[in-house]
Design a binder for these strands. Structure first.
Lengths: 199, 199
DNA sequence: ACAGAATGGGACAACAGTGTCCTATTATTA
DNA sequence: TAATAATAGGACACTGTTGTCCCATTCTGT
């Protein structure tokens, strides 16, 4: 990070491009850089002035995601309160990030069979940042709150996806935004069976 | 369907291409037709002899999916037994279809903002074929088996995704294939909380 | 008002993917 | 074996995207 202080307009333009990229890419993963520039209200040449090539833009987006996720995890204070309370905070935080996170699921270079070096590094950092979540699940396991028949890996995996599904449903208008968190958490915690239903 | 009986080799080549397409597209959604042809062990020109353009190939894949899904739903006899039993049969059937279904989630033209006419038609048919599932959920609601706080739409949505997530986990080696169905169904039905855990 | 920074708007070559077409070979079937 | 079907392999033009470059214009801070 040798960059000194950026001019106001430069950092604003940079942000506009990044935000536009999230919007465009989460709608259509194969969108061209021209589409991104148009969404940002910027000439394509300007975009290239900030991000030399497509990979660099995507990397910048990923880096953004990483800090957002880390902040969310940190703000969730997963080691405090009951595991369920902690999980609720985490879900709310993730949900609020919305497309900022979920565009990753749609970015081709992140699902490639043999990923780029930087992509690999990103996933390593992402996984590392998820340590507190693992700890939370294990705590829940020890305290008998989470089903021990479900591995921590599986629980984390399904948790991520459920938040994603909820967000997608809201995005499609199939689920009211305000009821989404409750729906998501009920599903994650209790599944779809009615409370009194004989197991 | 004016085609008379296809020669043996023709129908075999056709199948090889379709199967290869599923493999290749589910790995890398943006794969080229050349990749598909290579995977099928066929010249690209031959592929074009069977499917004039990319859209036609994708459409053929989708049609394949449709009959497979319809057959699975039909074989599941969703109106028989308890709702939970029916749901278990359905999950097993879906899971067995594996990538045959899930490649759809990765096909760009199926997630486009304003879909093609044929794609729209496909989704309509797919939704129509899902009527028995809706009926099943509603039956479960009436009988007090499924939580009425969760809409049928949401339950169906999350059900699909959960099967997908389970399949993906197996594909990545994160979940043993044999324990996948049980894990999926436990998660769908009861969520992640331990049975005795105070609600 | 002035100098430097930032941008718009294009031109350009390079490239990958697509769809079409043709010819030489190989399989298949009668 | 002869006739027909099917394929391989390549050439080809066309398209959309990409990354680079350049110049004129606009914006910004002093």
């Amino acid at each position: 990070m040798t960059d000194t202080v950026e001019s106001g307009s430069r950092s604003r333009t940079r942000r506009a491009i990044l935000d536009a990229a999230v919007v465009v890419f989460s709608q259509r993963r194969t969108a061209s850089l021209g589409d991104v520039a148009a969404e940002a209200g910027v000439a394509r040449s300007t975009l290239h002035r900030y991000f030399a090539d497509r990979a660099e833009l995507v990397h910048a987006l990923a880096a953004d995601v990483l800090v957002a996720v880390e902040k969310t995890i940190d703000d969730s204070a997963l080691d405090q309160g009951t595991p369920r309370e902690a999980l609720h905070r985490l879900a709310a935080g993730y949900f609020e990030l919305g497309p900022r996170i979920f565009f990753l699921y749609n970015e081709p270079s992140f699902n490639a069979p043999e990923p780029d070096e930087r992509v690999k590094g990103f996933f390593q950092k992402l996984e590392a940042s998820g340590k507190p979540i693992e700890a939370l699940i294990e705590r829940g396991h020890r305290e008998g709150v989470f089903a021990t028949s479900l591995s921590a890996d599986w629980i984390i995996r399904m948790f991520w996806w459920m938040v994603y599904i909820g967000w997608e449903a809201v995005d499609e208008g199939a689920l009211p935004r305000l009821s989404a968190p409750a729906t998501i958490l009920q599903t994650i915690e209790h599944g779809i069976l009615a409370p009194g239903s004989s197991s």
